[in-house]
Simulated scan of single mutants.
Amino acid sequence: MRVLSTFSGISAASVAWKPLGYGFVGYCEPAAFQCHVLNQRCNATAPKYLPHGKGFERRKYGSIPGGSVVNFGDITQITDDDLRALGQIDVLEGGSPCQAFSISGLRKGLGDDRGNLTLAFAKLAARMREINGLRFVIWENVKGVLSDKTNGFGCLLAGLAGSGSGGHPVESPRGGWTNAGHVLSRDEHGNADVSICWRTLDSQYFEVPQRRERVFLVASFDGAVDAGSIFAERDCENRDPSSRRGPQQADAGSREIGSGDLIWPPVLGTLNASGAGMSRPAGQGNELDFVLVFSDGTVRRPTPLECERAQGFPDGWTDVAVGGRATLDIERYRGVGNSMSVPVMEFVGYRLLKAVEAAEQERMAA
């Protein structure tokens, strides 16, 4: 399964999916610190395209050496020639910026340039379906996207289902979008063309000590694979793909995260770009959820390492050199807080593989 990752950040998808056999042929991430992580952990290049505006000066990337996997940077500047050079792509993956749909970001939805990147993602998927034979899309965002007043989620569904920018958004049911759903699009002949399924998943149920509700969406352009089968769990046995992590990654949620036994809290609130310790009106848990209390009397905030573990990353994943200097804690907090939970991505990637294998077995038996 060949993957193009977008809005890659520090690439939870790479950590989760490479052990499953996925191959990453490209990344799209313009933020300087995250680009350094992608270079040192995933051998990605410096970004080919940078957004226009403050914060993306080319000098910030001068210390990134070589790299064998292209990082396109800004997804809006990817050309058709860029896509043709990639060849066949099975999966387009990404979590477009969530600030436009979160309370902390004032929930401007599609009235925010960051929200419009969701539409750019859908347009990229349509182009890749034509140029690269794209089979699947996996997208992630905050739960607030389901109640966005500008109906960004409905616009995304329309774009993925083939309506394109000239079509109308899919209207939400009365009362808004539910935490899980299934959409089937048919072509002009009435044949099933695109299936889309989404489900809200909480990281705390995937062996990491963090409450983190996120919407995961799968779109299938492969008529043999219904996206609904990815999230249709009929039992609990298939939830955990289990034991494909190395020793340093195993049991991230249960490992000791500091000196002394942790007695509070049992589960952290939702990590964000600040890491921990910031009063927030964003529904991300009580301030005390970010104070660690240990049996030896120690009271402190989580460290970047502990935040990595709360997201399921290998220890030190974000501890990289940036232009000859050591990384700053705030950079690590931001990278981890803006990323996805590795075990949840592992679950989604595993279930997609199982659905593809089942479809292939049915084809061979026919």
Results as ranks from 00 to 15, higher is better:
Asn191Val: 11
Asp74Val: 06
Asp222Phe: 00
Arg41Thr: 06
Ala122Ser: 14
Glu213Gly: 08
His168Phe: 15
Pro65Asp: 10
Asp202Asn: 15
Gly133Tyr: 09
Cys307Met: 13
Asp226Ser: 15
Val344Cys: 02
Phe221Leu: 11
Gln284Thr: 11
Ser102Gln: 06
Gly166Tyr: 08
Ala365Trp: 09
Leu157Thr: 00
Phe24Lys: 02
Ala192Leu: 12
Asp289Cys: 06
Gln34Cys: 15
Asn191His: 15
Asp81Tyr: 02
Val137Asn: 04
His189Thr: 10
Val215Lys: 02
Phe7Pro: 04
Thr200Asp: 09
Leu106Trp: 03
Thr318Val: 08
Glu357Ser: 10
Ala232Tyr: 11
Phe101Leu: 04
Leu292Tyr: 07
Asp235Asn: 13
Lys143Asn: 01
Asn39Ile: 02
Ile257Thr: 15
Pro247Phe: 03
Arg59Asn: 08
Gly115Asn: 03
Ala161Arg: 13
Val170Arg: 10
Gly297Asp: 12
Leu268His: 09
Asp315Ile: 00
Thr79Ser: 15
Tyr61Thr: 07
Phe101Thr: 07
Val299Cys: 14
Tyr22Ile: 02
Ala359Phe: 05
Gly228Thr: 12
Gly144Leu: 01
Ile131Cys: 02
Cys42Gln: 11
Ser279Lys: 11
Asp222Glu: 13
Cys155Arg: 08
Leu110Phe: 03
Ser339Tyr: 08
Thr327Trp: 11
Gly176Val: 03
Ala366Asp: 10
Met128His: 05
Arg2Lys: 14
Ile263Asn: 07
Asn286Arg: 01
Phe136Asp: 05
Val137Phe: 08
Phe72Leu: 00
Gly67Asn: 04
Gly181Thr: 07
Asn272Glu: 10
Thr150Ser: 14
Ala366Ile: 12
Trp317Asn: 06
Ser14Gly: 09
Ala326Cys: 08
Leu92Asn: 00
Ser104Arg: 14
Ala120Met: 03
Gly21Asn: 07
Ala355Asp: 03
Pro173Tyr: 02
Arg2Val: 00
Cys42Val: 05
Asp226Pro: 14
Gly175Cys: 13
Ile230Thr: 06
Phe33Lys: 13
Phe101Pro: 01
Arg174Gln: 13
Leu106Ala: 12
Gly164Val: 12
Tyr27Pro: 08
Ala122Lys: 01
Ser242Lys: 12
Trp17Asn: 04
Cys155Ser: 10
Gly21Ile: 00
Leu20Cys: 01
Lys143Thr: 10
Val183Trp: 14
Gly190Ser: 15
Gly260Lys: 07
Phe290His: 10
Pro247Arg: 04
Leu268Gly: 01
Val208Gln: 12
Asn286Gly: 00
Pro281Asn: 05
Glu130Ala: 09
Val37Gln: 05
Arg174Val: 13
Thr298Gln: 12
Phe231Ala: 07
Gly66Trp: 02
Ser68Met: 03
Leu92Tyr: 10
Ile263His: 04
His189Tyr: 08
Gly190Ile: 08
Ile64Phe: 09
Ala358Asp: 15
Pro265Asn: 08
Phe347Trp: 15
Gly144Ser: 04
Glu287Gln: 05
Arg214Phe: 00
Ala120Gly: 10
Gly115Arg: 07
Gln249Ser: 08
Leu50Ser: 13
Thr327Glu: 13
Arg332Ala: 14
Leu110Lys: 03
Asn43Glu: 03
Gly176Ile: 06
Gln99Arg: 05
Arg41Leu: 03
Gly223Arg: 15
Phe56Ile: 11
Arg234His: 15
Gly228Val: 11
Ala125Leu: 04
Glu93Phe: 14
Gly26Glu: 04
Leu92Pro: 07
Thr150Asp: 10
Pro51Gln: 00
Gly277Pro: 09
